[in-house]
């Protein structure tokens, strides 16, 4: 009895780590955009939803190979990030940040409805049957493993981009001090556009990985949107490392909590944890504002 219990717990812990990788990736793009432009894309999860539809149509309807469909989806959502910035964020850059947040809330409505109108409300999936791997009595889905691996690679690439390339360094510098960099001749407009493109592309990558495991429908964003925002807030908005740590904590709570009850309870526990953390460690929330 005890040993079975343990193996389930271990399996849940392992699945938690795998989920953590994906959640960390989900939070990464949002955090990047926030850190650099000081804007919260409330519609971030909806961009992911569009990416999932992109995968579905390119692969299941137009029969493109998975890798090609993935690359195209990433490019499409990246381009959407740029459009979002140009059309919605740029006109509002001078106003209170809350206006930008609410305007992207409008985009959330728009994208949900556009998806409903264009794609219908049916659940769609790639119809892939990815194998389940058995690891000494524990069952781990191949899709999760793949998603975890891709998420890690994506994050390493972003890290290298920020640390090694000239543009990446300029992006980090702007995240540190918006005014100074403008004065030093860095083209803020260009940096914002690149950041939006990268932020969008990361949403696209997340979409490619999620669609391997989950069905897509116009409201799918609502199911994981709140968790992304909680991760970013708890990690300290704009704090990429903090977001990373928070993602793994949340993932463990969700999977281990979901082991004993339903998955939704995992989310509920995550939220309770979130509120408790706000009471005892508000610095996590304030890390970037001090």
């Amino acid at each position: 009895m005890d040993s079975i219990f343990d193996i389930y717990l271990l399996e849940a812990l392992l699945n938690g780590i795998l989920l953590g990788g994906v959640l960390a990736l989900l939070g990464l793009g949002l955090n990047l955009v926030f850190g650099v432009i000081d804007v919260v894309w409330i519609c971030y999860a909806e961009l992911i939803m569009l990416g999932m539809y992109g995968m579905y149509y390119l692969h299941s309807v137009y029969h493109l190979p998975l890798v090609v469909a993935g690359a195209l989806s990433i490019a499409i959502v990246g381009a959407l990030g740029v459009v979002l910035h140009l059309v919605v964020i740029q006109p509002l850059l001078g106003t209170a940040p809350i206006n930008q947040l609410l305007a992207t809330g409008g985009v959330l409505f728009f994208l949900q409805s556009a998806a409903t109108v264009l794609f219908g409300i049916e659940f769609k999936n790639l119809g892939l049957r990815l194998p389940v791997i058995e690891l000494s009595g524990m069952f781990v889905s191949y899709a999760r493993l793949l998603a975890f691996g891709a998420a890690l690679i994506g994050m390493v690439l972003v890290y290298l981009f920020l640390a090694k390339t000239y543009t990446g360094i300029a992006i980090r510098a702007i995240a540190q001090d918006r005014q100074i960099m403008g004065l030093m001749g860095v083209d803020t407009r260009r940096i914002y556009l690149i950041t939006s493109a990268v932020g969008g592309a990361l949403a696209g990558l997340a979409a490619c990985l999620l669609v391997l495991q989950y069905d897509v429908h116009p409201f799918v964003g609502l199911s994981f949107g709140p968790i992304i925002f909680m991760i970013c807030v708890l990690g300290g908005l704009g704090n990429i490392v903090g977001g990373f740590v928070a993602a793994f904590i949340f993932a463990e709570i969700i999977t281990v909590g979901g082991l004993y009850l339903d998955l939704e309870w995992g989310y509920v526990f995550a939220f309770v944890f979130f509120v408790v953390m706000m009471f005892i460690r508000p610095e996590g929330l304030l890390a970037r504002r001090a």
Partner: peptide, 18 residues
């Protein structure tokens, strides 16, 4: 028209805030 109302809301919200 399912979804059309939110479509219009979304666009209006963006336009109003701007």
């Amino acid at each position: 028209a399912v979804g059309y109302d939110n479509l219009v809301y979304g666009v209006l919200l963006v336009l109003f805030i701007i």
